[in-house]
Amino acid sequence: MGIYSDADLQAIWLSLKLASLVTLLLMFIGTPIAWWLARSRSRWKAIISALVALPLVLPPSVLGFYLLVAMGSNGPIGELTNALGIGTLAFSFPGLVVGSVIYSLPFVVQPIQNAIEGLGKRPLEVAATLRATPWDTFFSVVLPLAKPGFITAAILGFAHTVGEFGVVLMIGGNIPGETQVVSVQIYEHVEAIEYQQAHALSATMLVFSFVVLTFLYSFNKHARGSSMWGAQK
């Protein structure tokens, strides 16, 4: 692949590694949050919803700045990681993972939350009257019926993490092999007036994003027809 330099390939690999790990973590973290938001009538719901949605509206630099401060030696996260003997997370791959999880959270939580809300409470009630425990109900009823929402969440979480720039720059800097992901690498090329290289990576990102979104929309179109429960509500 002559059009990519070794550093470019390393950046692509790092982006994919980061996005995969973040997506995996987000599915575990986002699902219970989405479940709670979909089912709860607590007065905390509005506050939690707002917190989850903050990354949608905040400039990435603001988010990145506060994460940087929090992760520094004197910040709450920094003190915790220091106490645990991990050192600080700023300018490291694990730090990037933490930042990305927060940054992409709404993109995972909201599709899952919508899918669970779309199911309504009836399937859950039916499962309970058929002696299914709550865990059993989640795996045998919620997961299969809300599958389109979970798949959408995973794809959006992945794609959004790949496309992240501002937060990475703020908390990760630009360390090859550690925090230098594709979006930062493109910036680097442009700064160095290497437009050819920037073109290669940018076009790759463009095609990737387009393919992902096309897949997502065609998948959702199919899924809608099969979800009778959503249609009845």
Partner: peptide, 11 residues
């Protein structure tokens, strides 16, 4: 328990 509307699991 039998619900008012058919409540079969669609999947």
């Amino acid at each position: 328990y039998i619900f008012q509307e058919a409540s079969l699991f669609e999947h």
